[in-house]
Design a protein around this nucleic acid. Sequence first.
DNA 1: CGGCGCGGCGCG
DNA 2: AAAGCGCGCCGCGCCG
Length: 564
Amino acid sequence: MWSEADAICLGVDRGDRVVAAAFRRADPTGLVELGRRPLASGEVAAWVGRRESEAHAAGRHIRWVWSSTATWYPRLLDAGVRVERCTDLRLCRAILSSALDDALPPLPVWDAPHEEPAPAALFDVVPDGAARAEEIDETAAEYARQERVAVSSGLRLLLAAESAGSLAAAEMTSAGLPWNRGGHEQILVSELGERTAAGRPRLIEERAREVRAALDDETASLDSQPKLLRALHRAGVAAESTSKWELAEHDHPAIAPLLDYKRMMRLYTANGWGWLDEWVVDGRFRPTYVVGGVVTGRWASSGGGALQIPRLLRPAVRADPGWAIVDADVAQLEPRVLAAMAHDRAMAAAAAGRDLYDGVVSAGVAATRSEAKYAVLGALYGSTTGDAARLMPRLRRAFPRAVGLTDDAALAGERGERVSTMLGRTSPAPGPRWEAMQQRANASAADERSARSAARERGRFTRNFVVQGTAAEWALAWMADLRTRLAAFPPSEVPAPRSGPAFARRPHLAFFLHDEVIVHAPADQAEAAAEAVRESAARAGRLLFGEFPIDFPLDIRIGPSAAE
DNA sequence: CGGCGCGGCGCG
DNA sequence: AAAGCGCGCCGCGCCG
């Protein structure tokens, strides 16, 4: 039975025992259940690992179907078991309910996000009702419902990519990003000074004293926005806010040390010694990724600020002895995605080669690279003022299809319509408050202005949604292909001492940030891993855009650390 | 005391 | 100069 299964559902029975159900996908009849088997406590991970290796040896793949990867997979990884494919029913349901609005009945069990790892007990000792994974019957039924409604090839690809992403996310948390505490501390000390016994680091205290002296106000509060603003006003600085952009425009001796103070405080509070103590354990930073956490399909993160690590700290990302960091990011991902999805050959030609913005300059749209960049970003974000807006007519003449696509998405959003990405992830419908505001538009001039402003705001969102969301799909496809390629590498002689057992001997994904991946690789396999990164990027481009001539050039750095 | 909104700023 | 999209986290200050 198990050797014929294409998919195996995992759920629990009434006694919180794990149950596996085997399925086969037969074309005319759909999904056929082949049978079930309860798994004894403590045997789950080993049993899954055995099915996975048998399938692998037979040249087949099993799709593991479960309520949520975040619930089930960490325990398997803890036990050293990696799986190749899965279906994350919660993530897939979120996509399907939005895309096919009445196709799936609302079911609270499946609609609520649930991101807690399963209790360890589920995988060893059966507790008294402590485990809360989903019932096997409910899991199997939901799987069948989703299989029935997900018929378009784009959506099926998206569901597979989203689920593969959920595996990659759990694997990256398990493997961890190699993080050198000493290197991080060195950066902190050189930027902030040594930690003092009583309170903040030396240079922060020093800078605070300079600011207060320049303001001639020994008690000025620098950390409270309203108090600081009043102190600035008393000193003759007529700033309306304390943001660094505005402060930089004022001329006063307190400004320079104040900006430096703010910069240092940011580093100290967000990524200082406290962050190190909390988030770097045993030489690894293990962030929690929230797959599909952004409506566009981008990932979010929770805890540790994984997606906001300052560039300044990149040198602290350091490979284990005998290993290397392969750090790859895509140059101008979003405009390339736009050119391809709009089938804009002129823009694709400008994108050919390394730098898209240089290409836009060559196309005669802008005089300088930075001007070109702001013009293109203006099309993606919906600039209405400044240089970007001024350049828009020329950009539209040069790249009518690309700019037309973003304009159409904006107009659809302004009308209250929904838009969708290349593979079919749909933007949320406007809320009742937005609709009501549009209804009120002719009540008064003020109502009309606010309706118009809300409509424009939504237009900017939908404009960006189609591009940001499709770029997220490209990145998922890139990562999904890459994790499979890396898993096929031969095991290395040199283990990475602190990576989870499933990854300690092969190059593996260690970090992901929208358009960047970091691979931790045995040093002698680093070049081959970098080549895999390139091949996967090319493959992702073909998967989404077929033979349309668009390339996705990568900046790849190989070295002992992720320093620039 | 904890929860929440805000200003501010890090990342893409 | 910052703008126009998407996030998470910090400290502050207010509220219950």
